[in-house]
Amino acid sequence: MAASEKLQSLVDQMPEPDNRGTYGNMDKERIQKAVAEIHRGGRDAVVGLIEMLVEPGAGNDIKPRYALHVLAVHVCQLGDDKARAQFARTVASQLAGRPKGVQRYLIRQLQVAGAAEVVETLGQALLDPGLCEPAARALVSIGHGAADQLRGALPKVTGKCRLAVILGLAALADRNAAGAFKEALDDNDADIRIAGAWGLACLADAGSAGTLLKAADGRTGWERIQQTNACLVLAEKLLAAGNKAAATGIYTRLRDARTKPSEGYVRQAAERGLAAAT
């Protein structure tokens, strides 16, 4: 089914916004029946829906937008992973060459219903500054196979994209990104340095303790607060993993080094950590 009269008639069954522009009146059964019928239309129906989407503000695509999202949720409800993956592949195949606002919307639907079958497409999107950020979030949500894509993109991205990629790798606690996290600690951009510290904390690698403590000691204000938190989180993770010696080392250093009255709360946090470690 292409963008046919039948598809249009199904899309027309999506609710009309009320006079406030909201979906205040909705017929659940009518919507579900129409969306199930669209799903039965297979790839052509999905492509047809996507063809109806426009850049926000460039026209009225309220109904096909809603229908595509309800379809994304519908394929997750079916318990049929083949059908879900087919939907996700179709959406991913339609990403290229569309207006940025449409591309971002499609990526959001991949975040809803995509899995390993779409990570390569999302990995490509990381290289587009206009799509990098939503693509990184979608990859983190998907998880499976996402770290390879993020790591692969890292040498090719800059600025905001690089930050999004590093934070994505941190969220996934990607051990293969340890080098990148350490490198980030020396970046000129404070946000990158904070992201690198967070990544190292997430890895729970005892070997990073000295590096993190040194990084925290050398900063002031917001960055010092964030870097110190990374040290405490690393200590907690090491303690939880049974590495008491490494955790104790971090806590002791923080307790002894943070002598300013305004950092008394850091000393107290370190003392609580030491008490937990003994």
């Binding site: 809803v112 950020e133 999004a164 934070l167």
Partner: peptide, 17 residues
């Protein structure tokens, strides 16, 4: 339900985490 779980922990827009 991996898909529903995506709403339990939602990735944030950088630089926030």
């Amino acid at each position: 339900d991996d898909f529903a779980n995506r709403l339990v922990n939602q990735p944030m827009r950088a630089p926030w985490h």
